[in-house]
Design a protein around this nucleic acid. Sequence first.
DNA 1: TAATGATCATCT
DNA 2: AGATGATCATTA
Length: 227
Amino acid sequence: MISPPSSPPQSIEELEELANQICGFTIGELAQAAGVTIPTHLKHHKGFAGQIIELYLGAEAGSKPVPDFEHLGVELKTLPVSDKGSAIESTFVCTAPLTPEPFVTFETSHLFNKLKQVLWIPLVTYKNQPWVERIVGPGHIWRPDTVEKQLLKQDWEELTEILLTGHVQDLNASLGQVLQIRPKAASSRVKKQTLDEDGKSIQVNPKGFYLRAAFTTKIIKQKFMCG
DNA sequence: TAATGATCATCT
DNA sequence: AGATGATCATTA
């Protein structure tokens, strides 16, 4: 049986090798082999699958606002996909600053820093199957191509402009072609102080950047179309 | 408190 | 069924 590595991968190649080794196993099998207690419901353990994958790929646990494999510049994302290869959920990228710093560009943004290089791990989910049966699919490193980068940049600039000008309250998830901003908090009752368009202090629900499922579906399918 | 890992629940 | 808004656990 397979077991988690004792140290983080030192190169992209090592990371890809680790990803290859867990391909084909289910989340339940990996958790069991690692001696991790398997929760009954995902509702109270939404990050469980992601954390198991982190364990097997040698990612450092933690909540730092930097890529998972900082020394490699690689961010790790698990993505639940249907048996047809479509993303089932949107993908959280990072917290959206309610008051972005002026002069930060897309290229220097926290968001792009995380999306420069992503190791996508598809988790194949069949309908009505328990989530522990999700199968680890073939992982691959993705770097946004010219078109993808331009789409991300457009959306980021549009959304950041709204934040910069204090129109946070006008934001909703329908904005953005490939990116969107949605609530990211323990509940809608959680509030954070910021300023509105007139510079008046207001309280709003914290937000995060998410990649739309249609966008991540294309990324995952590229792997199978181009090899 | 604010960042990480995300999925849940509801509405259209 | 897809999209939007709400929510859950954990760590520093």
